[in-house]
Design a protein around this nucleic acid. Structure first.
Length: 439
RNA sequence: CGGGGUGUGGCGCAGCCUGGUAGCGCGCCUGUUUUGGGUACAGGAGGUCGUGGGUUCGAGUCCCGCCGCCCCGACCA
């Protein structure tokens, strides 16, 4: 994208309504604009990040054996009457009526709908297990939306639902999802800690929430440093495969034996036993639940068992706050000058800064670089001053900045800057492309 | 939903106490200038002062209602 043509409205000053770092930076870097309390429009730069996060989430869901579907945002109230949650959910659920005066709602979650789909289609235990997920907008009419996209009313969530024949199967699905989550967060450059959680309105008796570490997080967290040593992505010895039950067993044991708790659940007695203590601030970005037959029973979803008799499958549900993650990553990774995107979700791999638009050597070099990135670079071809370009590039947080100025261009060199470290090297165009991983 | 705050060109703010035709910085447009960390100068465009009502000869300013937004708390992916 050429910045001179891009719809990337950056701001020098922080709008008054934004108080926390990620919200300020998202507005200043032109990622989003607020349209009403807790509801945001995603602009090109922000949308690219959102899509990148979706892609990572999707890849890891698929790897864990989940199948992607897409359920609607609008649901009929009747489904929720079946489960009994239509009355339980309260004012947080946005209730609407269609033109025929039928009660509808904007889905805050999808247990009822997916259970309905399942019971219509799946008739035999032989078809189990199934894990279905979708990435769809949700609406929860929060009393007090805040922190930008971290606590919006409308938000993008990945929610998965597992159906298993029995408790053992459900636990296995639960563990697969947990592994998928740890892999997902690691790939996004985040340190995530799984913590035992209450099940809340979803119901059930096994639940974990995933907290990522960020200095500005909402809650204080205490955990065993052992979590920081684990590599969830490794395929070799000591790695974890979704396919091998023994791996899942070992993985789950790792996740549940090391100490981890938020301040509300902090147990000083157990904490004292932890050899390598770590504490910090955290943001919840995912939550998983096992709740057995809560919905299959209330909504009468059955499959025929081996003996031909109907059985209620055991369910779990698994959520990742996709749009929240955009804010959470920024909270975890920024400095005074702006955002520092992890490579895996950055909107662009690199920014190409042409310090002297109109200079034949600079223009040619920039065009060559821009073409080589094949759309994955933001080319700052504006006629602004160098300082403005440096400031905007830092603000937007591209992992690499390739600075092309008349001084270096004459010698066939560009300056390559790594946003995260500030490190700069003077290299040829070819070397720059190689170092950025574009060539 | 309880408590607090705030609303004035795109963004940040002053003006309100003590009513008299709306101002500053940034941004934007034009020109000159500058050219490796938000250059300087000159000219210019842009505002129903959130909204409805009231008081007054006259309301951004005073009074009442409503709405939006933000912060703290209770609640949450």
């Amino acid at each position: 994208m050429r910045l001179s043509r891009g719809f990337i409205p950056t701001l020098k000053e922080t709008p008054n309504e934004a108080q926390i770092a990620s919200h300020r930076l998202m507005l200043r870097a032109g990622l989003v604009r607020q349209t009403s309390a807790g509801i945001y429009a995603w602009l090109p730069l922000g949308l690219r990040v959102l899509r990148n996060i979706e892609r990572l989430v999707r890849e890891e869901q698929d790897r864990a054996g989940a199948q992607e579907i897409l359920m609607p945002t609008i649901q009929p109230a009747d489904l929720w009457r079946e489960s009994g949650r239509y009355d339980d959910y309260g004012a947080e659920m946005l209730r609407i009526k269609d033109r025929h005066d039928r009660d509808m709602l904007y889905g805050p979650t999808n247990e009822e709908m997916v259970t309905d789909l399942f019971r219509q289609a799946v008739k035999s235990y032989k078809e189990l297990p199934q894990i279905l997920y979708h990435i769809q907008w949700k609406f929860r009419d929060e009393v007090r939306p805040r922190f930008g996209v971290m606590r919006g009313r409308e938000f993008l969530m990945k929610d998965a639902y597992s159906f298993d024949l029995d408790h053992a199967g459900a636990v296995s699905s639960y563990r697969k999802m947990m592994l998928a989550y740890m892999r997902t967060f690691q790939r996004m450059g985040l340190k995530a800690i799984p913590m035992e959680a209450d099940t809340g309105p979803i119901g059930g008796d096994l639940s974990h929430e995933f907290i990522i570490l960020a200095p500005t997080g909402e809650s204080q967290v205490y955990y065993d440093a052992a979590f920081e040593e684990i590599d969830y992505l490794s395929a070799g010895a000591g790695g974890f495969s979704h396919e091998r039950p023994e791996d899942l067993e070992r993985f789950f044991k790792e996740m549940t034996t090391h100490y981890a708790a938020t301040d509300e659940k902090h147990d000083l007695g157990r904490w004292e036993q932890v050899a390598a203590k770590r504490e910090g601030r955290g943001i919840e970005v995912g939550h998983i639940f096992y709740f057995g037959t809560k919905y299959t029973k209330s909504m009468n979803a059955t499959v025929a068992g081996p003996d031909g008799k109907p059985l209620h499958p055991e369910m779990g549900s698994y959520g990742i706050g996709v749009s929240r993650l955009v804010g959470a990553v920024i909270e975890a990774s920024h400095d005074d000058n702006g955002i520092i995107w992890p490579d895996s979700i950055a909107p662009f791999k690199a920014a190409i800064l042409n310090l002297k638009v109109g200079d034949a050597a600079c223009d040619a070099m920039c065009e060559q670089l821009y073409a080589a990135f094949d759309g994955n670079a933001l080319y700052d071809d504006r006629t602004d001053r160098a300082g403005a370009k440096f400031a905007d590039a830092d603000l937007m947080g591209h992992p690499w900045q390739i600075v092309v100025g008349p001084r270096g261009a004459a010698a066939g060199k560009v300056e390559l800057k790594r946003r995260a470290t500030g490190e700069r090297v003077e290299v040829s165009v070819e070397e720059a492309l190689k170092l950025c991983g574009a060539a």
